[in-house]
């Protein structure tokens, strides 16, 4: 019997040693290379991903010698999972998921904000469920995607109207599931980005109302990379950014064609897109204002219990890789 116990103990010890060995092996550095050419891109379906869609459609990254394999995700938060899990080399992520990266000491870096605007996030609600003004949302079932700009915007929206998250019944849903849930009457409202608000409004017509929120939340929509890419392939990052610069120039000079490309990707007509794009600034930059916003979001995350009560707000500057953009356009970088 004692022999069996020792065998059992040995097995447990061996399992632990194997775990440690795996961790060490994963940590071993591979041979560096001057440029990584085959890249996997994680994209979130939103009008803010427009520069990425254009760069792909017009072959701007191919011109830079990059071969891109694209993977679509329901939200930037899931793009981030792919980046942190080593399944993507770069991706589109807003600042909110990056707040949690900082709070948990993980390694992913923002190389540029490629789009920003203060009218992308909206709350759409069912009028026939008794919601005609923001205050009517009290006590209702409201959907948002937890830990993303969707939830943070809802938090800001409620605060703006003298409410807190405890005043509503929060339902965690993926953006693509929200319009159907609202149309079926399973929820009373949802807070998310386009094109989901527009899609729900189109079906519900008079039964729905979009609650005004312009100016409440200026979202910086970013390109994020794993730390390893910055350490080993700085030239690749410059190529990614050069492709995006070309895309943004294209949006400025070939508006009609650009809208047609985006239209195919997000499923909105060019007329609707024209209206939405007016509020979006497509310009590569790295601003201090993003850091201020992330610090504010970190406070919210701690208050909401998403981070330990004793968690300290990290220095979010460490989550920015400024070298590449600075070398292309020094004026675009205000982060020191």
């Amino acid at each position: 019997m004692k022999r069996k116990i020792w065998i059992g103990i040995t097995i447990v010890v061996v399992v632990v040693i194997m775990l440690v060995a795996t961790a060490l092996m994963n940590g071993c550095a591979k041979q560096p290379s001057p440029k990584k050419l085959d890249l996997v891109l994680a994209v979130n379906v939103t009008t803010y991903s427009a520069p990425v869609y254009i760069a792909l459609a017009k072959g701007f990254w191919e011109e830079e010698g990059l071969k891109i394999t694209r993977k679509d995700f329901a939200a930037g938060r899931f793009c981030l999972d792919a980046i942190l899990g080593g399944k993507a080399d770069f991706g589109t992520v807003a600042e909110a998921p990056m707040v949690f990266v900082g709070l948990t000491g993980q390694k992913a870096l923002i190389i540029a904000t490629m789009a920003s605007g203060d009218n992308e996030m909206k709350v759409i609600a069912r009028k026939d469920h008794g919601i005609v003004s923001p205050l009517d949302i009290k006590g209702k079932k409201v959907a948002a995607l937890v830990s993303t700009v969707s939830e943070f915007f809802l938090y800001l929206f409620l605060n703006e109207h003298g409410m807190t998250m405890s005043n509503i019944n929060l339902v965690n849903l993926k953006p693509a599931e929200m319009p159907n849930a609202l149309i079926n009457g399973d929820i009373d409202a949802f807070a998310v980005w386009e094109p989901f608000v527009y899609n729900a409004g189109k079906v519900l017509n008079e039964k729905a109302t979009v609650l005004s929120s312009k100016g409440l939340y200026d979202i910086p929509f970013n390109i994020v990379i794993p730390e390893e890419l910055a350490q080993k392939y700085p030239e690749t990052i410059k190529s990614i950014l050069r492709g995006l610069v070309k895309a943004e120039q294209f949006i400025g000079t070939n508006r009609k064609e650009a809208l047609e490309i985006i239209s195919k990707e997000v499923g909105l007509s060019t007329d609707v897109l024209e209206g939405l794009a007016k509020d979006i600034k497509f310009e590569l930059m790295l601003n201090n204002s993003t850091i201020d916003l992330m610090e504010r979001e970190a406070k919210w995350a701690i208050e909401a219990g998403y981070a330990p009560k004793d968690a300290k707000i990290p220095d979010y500057r460490s989550l920015f890789y400024t070298k590449a953009l600075k070398s292309l356009n020094p004026k675009a970088v205000t982060i020191e």
């Binding site: 949690f100 937890v146 993303t148 019944n169 929060l170 339902v171 965690n172 849903l173 399973d186 981070a307």
Partner: peptide, 16 residues
């Protein structure tokens, strides 16, 4: 699509 329950809480804790 849940707002309570252990599965919901696992998903939330994963996201954050």
């Amino acid at each position: 699509g849940a707002s309570e329950g252990l599965g919901y809480r696992i998903e939330i804790t994963r996201l954050v």
